[in-house]
Lab assay of single mutants.
Amino acid sequence: TRVETATETAWISLVTALHLVLGLSAVLGLLLLRWQFPAHYRRLRHALW
């Protein structure tokens, strides 16, 4: 049971790290898009909202 718990903890930390990385890359990508294509971003936002 001790090994299982350790594996579970490792998986949880791995998944958390993955989610953090994905979230950060998504935010960075959005910022980059907004910085590179302001007109396109505004049009996209206008279409979405």
Rank of each mutant, 00 (worst) to 15 (best):
G23K: 05
R2L: 13
T5H: 01
S25Q: 08
R34Y: 07
I12L: 12
T1Q: 14
T16V: 13
L31A: 14
R45C: 05
T1C: 11
A6L: 08
A17N: 02
E8I: 02
L31M: 10
L33S: 01
E4H: 10
L22V: 13
A39G: 15
H19T: 02
T9E: 11
T9K: 13
A47G: 08
T1E: 11
T9D: 07
V27S: 09
L44P: 02
H40M: 10
S25W: 05
L33P: 07
V3Y: 00
S13T: 13
L48W: 06
A47R: 14
R45Y: 13
S13H: 08
V15R: 01
A39H: 15
L31N: 00
L22P: 05
L48F: 05
R43C: 10
V27G: 10
T16L: 08
I12R: 07
L20D: 03
A39Y: 10
A26L: 10
W11T: 01
P38E: 13
S13V: 11
P38C: 07
W49Y: 14
L22I: 12
R2G: 11
L28A: 04
T1S: 11
F37T: 04
V21A: 11
L22Y: 01
H46T: 09
F37Q: 00
A47E: 06
A26H: 00
V3N: 00
W35M: 15
L48T: 07
L18H: 02
V27D: 01
Y41V: 15
L30P: 06
L30N: 03
L44T: 07
L44F: 15
T5R: 01
T1N: 08
T1M: 14
Y41N: 05
I12S: 04
V21R: 03
R43Q: 10
G29R: 03
V27I: 14
L28I: 06
W11C: 05
L22N: 04
T7Q: 13
A6Y: 01
H19N: 00
A39R: 15
R2V: 11
H19V: 00
G23Q: 06
R34G: 04
G29K: 04
L30A: 12
W49V: 06
H46Q: 13
Y41W: 13
L18Y: 03
L20K: 01
